[in-house]
């Protein structure tokens, strides 16, 4: 790890003043579960580390009629233990519990989950987000068993966020604050598929801090997350599906289906959602939506199996949301 100077501000104002205008000047530290590994591997070599855990206004879960406000430094463990998350937002609760290590749940934060860097092994070995060697991506002809099946490049890593798909399905927004102002953008727009080597995979700028996540009320919204993984213990999922269904009687009035770990961003399965819009939730319509979830996939040499997993994950998430899981 490269040596850095360290600050632990107690207010957001102080924290923002400590950030730089370029990446590499200052990194934000919260749970550290990704940040410290990135620094150990020299993927990040910041001159300064700004620890935001002491900033009180970045903590806390607030539930009201307006929905759920999740502070950036709220841990997975806090989310897991929150009664509103458990009852009104099961899609979020399942996503949290998918992080199978109690240690990571005690340390990792909601903001950190959205801002963590990709786990792609080419990225983690220093080949950058596009995994380039001599101007060519190493992924199509390399070991791509866990890489993207949607998007078609030039980036092939998968978004590692556990909460992203559920938050997008639930219509959440994130607040990004800098010393000169603030903006609130949809969780969907927060994630970006980088088109060149110098761009990032989120909308966050180097002088900004993601301060909170705003989730709209979900009472009466059937929602669930289903995760497919290789083993029960601590590991990354192969594919996840988060679904949120607004109902009018027994008919689906609005449907949002978002896949995780299949593309450089959480992937909205628009065709699968359309397959259910205006229809009743039956085993047949669920099957149709699941089939549509694989539409448009462009799997690589070693990951066609993930297309089938995507369909299965959508089917099981829908069954769970409908109460038949």
């Amino acid at each position: 790890m490269q040596a850095f100077e360290y600050a632990s501000p107690s207010t957001l104002h102080e924290a923002l003043a400590l950030l730089g205008s370029q990446w590499g000047e200052a990194d934000v530290l919260a749970g550290g579960t990704d940040q410290i590994s990135l620094m150990k591997d020299f993927i990040h070599t910041p001159k300064r580390v700004v620890n935001i855990k002491g900033v009180k206004e970045l903590g806390g879960i607030h539930h009201s009629a307006q929905g759920l406000r999740i502070g950036a430094t709220v841990t997975f463990d806090e989310l897991a233990g929150n009664p509103a998350v458990r009852t009104e937002y099961p899609a979020l609760h399942s996503a949290v519990m998918g992080v199978a290590s109690p240690q990571i749940r005690n340390m990792g934060t909601a903001g950190g989950d959205l801002c963590q860097r990709p786990r792609c092994w080419y990225y983690r070995r220093g080949f950058g987000l596009l995994a380039l060697q001599d101007g060519k991506s190493l992924v199509p002809n390399g070991d791509n068993r866990y890489h993207a099946i949607f998007g078609g490049g030039p980036a092939y890593f998968v978004s590692p966020s556990s909460l992203g798909p559920a938050l997008i399905a639930l219509g959440a927004k994130v607040k990004l604050v800098s010393a000169s102002g603030q903006r609130v953008i949809s969780a969907e727009k927060f994630f970006v598929s980088p088109q060149n080597e110098s761009s990032r995979e989120t909308a966050l700028l180097p002088n900004e801090i993601l301060t909170e996540i705003q989730v709209p009320p979900a009472r009466g919204v059937k929602n669930a997350t289903y995760e497919i993984r290789q083993k029960e213990a601590l590991d990354w999922p192969l594919v996840t599906a988060s679904v949120a269904l607004q109902m009018q009687g027994s008919t689906v009035s609005k449907c949002s289906i978002v896949l995780g770990h299949v593309a450089p961003t959480p992937w909205s399965a628009a065709k699968a959602s359309q397959a259910l819009d205006g229809k009743a939730l039956t085993p047949e319509t669920i099957q149709q939506a699941a089939e549509a979830a694989g539409d448009g996939a462009t799997p690589l040499s070693g990951n066609e199996y993930k297309v089938k997993l995507a369909r299965v994950a959508v089917k099981r998430a829908l069954l769970e949301a409908s109460g038949k899981g």
Binding site: I36, N51, N106, M107
Partner: peptide
């Protein structure tokens, strides 16, 4: 592993299990 994965460095901090390899001492 020194990367917050294996658990061999587990300690309890303020009553919660954590990976001590992934916490800064100063913090």
């Amino acid at each position: 592993c020194d990367r917050g994965t294996c658990g061999a460095c587990t300690v309890i901090v303020d009553g919660k299990v954590m990976y001590s390899c992934t916490v800064l001492a100063i913090d």
